[in-house]
Design a protein around this nucleic acid. Structure first.
Lengths: 209, 209, 209, 209
DNA sequence: TATGAATGAGCCTTCATTCAT
DNA sequence: CATGAATGAAGGCTCATTCAT
């Protein structure tokens, strides 16, 4: 969709240069997580890496470039490896969906902070909107794919509204993130909610007997 | 629920003064909706109301004061009138919950833009966090209350995990908002998802026959 | 020199109005003593008296007017009542000169803070310069007068350089003020210095015998 | 005596940078001399050097930093080189004390304007107070040292109250400055006063014959 | 490749002053 | 007389960006 790895405007000849870009992006993630976009200054980011502001601008010509690279990095990190291929079990995939969310919420909350910031930003920044749309679109397709597959296999309810359910799963994940972001103690409750969603999607066992 | 109208630091003697404060807050809402907190400048807000920057500062001593008043206003506007009193029908209330969301999403999307910004901001701003926590807490209690009432009346499933369901409903609402904010065409799909949630909560009709 | 009591631009019909002017001037003295001219704001002064800024401007059209009135008040307060008339004893007057300084340094240090501010200000403000010149001039004449009188009476050394001594006494007073302003513990030492000045001016007792 | 050259918060790598700091400090001296602290604005100082305001802030992070450096510079310039070493003649040193004052009063009056401002400021600014106290303390010790030395050598009166005399000399110098600052024509008179002080300190010649 | 130095633009805030009531 | 409301003009400071080295 985008012309590949346009993260840095500078041709990164050396691996050293690549590493510095990564460091800057990671610093930007932390900076935004710490204080939102308002507090994101090139000085701050550069300082976090021990680099000079001018050096930062050498790698990212403009602040906007750095932000784009940062958000792209967030999105990449968020792309859970769905491999709904051959032997993929749709139910497992659904569970993984939620499990990955909860896991990341505990281990790398910054990413979700940025996800919320990305949503906020997408309302007024076309570039962010495109990025988010791309991410949401592919995520949505993945979910729809394994839901369909699950229905075909009889794992999920036959009367499932796939489109609505796909949106619902994404919405639930995002909503859970918002609900738990500032209060980790709500995670267990959210996990019970996730389990309930699964149950409501899974096909009723055939009446035994 | 909130401790009085401390929105403005200036004792508002006249209704005229009150109106100007309102105008400033509304302008701030639009400004944030248009460009996020990054673009929220006192100049911008003042200009939108035709006032002088100094006049803005006459009503709100600091930018932070204006932001607080603005977020408080958003929260107030978001407090859907739950009237779970006497004849309140829990199922209707649940439907109203979603209906109000969809309605506002169409008619006054700015408020939800700000809700997302509020979530983003709450990660690093204690004042926002408190405000959001207060709002979420009271919302959560309201939902839990009508879920319990519904169970008692036999409208909702007897085995419902009230706590998880309450969180789930809030998460769904927020998730739907995020999903539909930049793409109104997704609203109908989201409505189908909302209907599905209702169904999964409502008690199964007794097997006829 | 100045056309009398031009302290307030408003004809003070009522004693009430006069009292408020006084209050404002006193508040200004305190404000300047507390934070120098830099911190002298009309708001601050008005607040100290419980008045509105607009009320202050009713009595003193401009900030400059208030400052002038304030400095004039300081000068007036500083004019020690020299009454070198009839029975005036020049030596007593000299002692009173220093005594009054030390007394005021303890009891009303604000006035000397303002005196130093007045000197600082006189370097760049013509109005202050004129005021200070007038004060210094009359003070100088007074001192010279009683020095001359004292010489005539044989109380002071006959070979005294009156002009230099008059300047010296003023300089000493001002210098003592600067030396003791921030360190009251130096006052006793300064008093010994003052006594020494007296001694060096007084006529040597005729060689007895 | 002062703890290093912390005048600028920026590590001055180049002599060029050092020169610009000097230029800014000198411009600040002129600005304060011209209009007092009230007229001291970063814009004004920057303009006097032809620099940008942002450039000023590159060298001095805050206005306060610039002021401190400026006052420190004044103090440094005021520290007359007393070299009371081996062959130092106490009487010469006393004369130099006054001579240096009169000389500077003619050649570089700005410095004394700032000295008066420093005294005014020291009443309310702790940093200025400390600086002034340090300067006064070391000056006082120097004077006391050569007075004592002079007494020991029989140059000065044996019954001299060293402490009081030291304070008196400082006070006289400061008072002379205040007296002559706006009226250079008074300098000759002040010089006669200074000569008188010398005389009153010097030991009486032994009665000849 | 890296950085010290520099800057134009802009931001939040304060201030003296005015004016209708 | 007195004051609430309003404002034009600054003032201190920050920021993204540039450029010579």
């Amino acid at each position: 969709m985008h012309d590949a790895r346009k993260d840095s405007p500078v041709p990164l000849h050396t691996p050293h240069g690549h590493a510095r870009c990564e460091a800057l992006v990671e610093a930007a993630i932390q900076a935004i997580a710490d204080g939102g976009f308002e507090k994101l200054t090139t000085r701050n980011v550069a300082a976090r890496t021990g680099m000079n502001i001018a050096t930062l601008h050498y790698y990212f010509a403009t602040k906007e470039d750095l932000i784009e690279a940062t958000l792209r990095r967030v999105v990449r990190e968020l792309e859970t490896p769905f491999l709904p291929g051959a032997g993929g079990n749709p139910l497992i995939e659904l569970r993984d969906e939620f499990a990955a969310t909860f896991e990341r919420l505990k281990r790398r909350p910054e990413i979700y902070r940025l996800l919320v910031e990305l949503h906020a930003r997408s309302s007024h920044d076309p570039s962010s909107r495109r990025l988010l749309a791309a991410m949401t679109g592919s995520w949505n397709r993945n979910i729809a794919a394994y839901l369909s597959e699950g229905i075909k296999r009889g794992v999920f309810r036959a009367d499932l509204d796939v489109e609505a359910a796909a949106l619902g799963i994404m919405a639930s994940v995002k909503g859970i993130v918002m609900e738990c972001q500032n209060d980790a103690s709500r995670i267990p409750v959210a996990e019970r909610f996730a389990a309930e969603i699964e149950r409501s999607i899974v096909a009723s066992p055939p009446p035994s007997g």
